[in-house]
Amino acid sequence: MSELEAIYRILLRELIRYWRDKSRIISSFVQPVLFLLVLGGGFSFIKLGNINYQVFLFPGIVAMSLVGISISSGISVIWDREFGILKEILVAPVSRTSIFVGKALGGCFTALIQGTIVLSLALLLGVPLTPSSFLLSVILMIIISLGLVSIGLIIASLIETIESFGVIMNFLIFPLIFLSGAFYPLKEAPEWLRLISYANPLTYGVDALRYVIIGVSFLPFAISSTVISLFSISAIFIGGIAFNKQK
């Protein structure tokens, strides 16, 4: 019971901090929307089969809106460490696993809020969302962001200085998004690009989301959804171990 309470408290803290940081909310919301309107709008003359490029891009943008916020909320543990809050939390009579779970759920929740807002832009684009496709999208978003938050938490357990924060964000987030097939169809991509994309877990997340939201995909949904789930489960598992082992 007290472990559940601790998880809730840590999650709540993440939500309060997210809510107070209006500039971060806006900036992390504006970026995907810009991509959707400018990139999608600019290339809207392109048709992929009978699908408009902007519509094709949309599920990728939904995934993109999850990436930055998930990873950064995982990595935010290094800020907690720098400002001493982590020490206060770690010395409390609760297990590290609960602290990890609270952190992961907190990051997942904030990413989910953001992703759902972006998902709701489907109405503007005329992409039909049914209750079941909406629900499936939310489940996929939870799976994707839990995995990414865990990746952030693993990184935070490994590095010690906040100076590395910016570098990691740039070197991780952009390749992750660009090489995920969010912006282009993998079917048409050159061989080397496709091979790299296969190694990127986000590729499967984007592909699964695309199948659920607009009904097309590169891989069978059963495969993409299984791979992204396996990725998240192992990231959570490794993240939990890394978090338990850190100083």
């Binding site: 309060i16 809050i85 409390a92």
Partner: peptide, 23 residues
Amino acid sequence: QDPSLDNRLTGRENLEMHAGLYG
């Protein structure tokens, strides 16, 4: 010895979190 408060929370919220963590 070093500060260990969450600056982005209010005083009360810091206390509430602690109370929750300590059951």
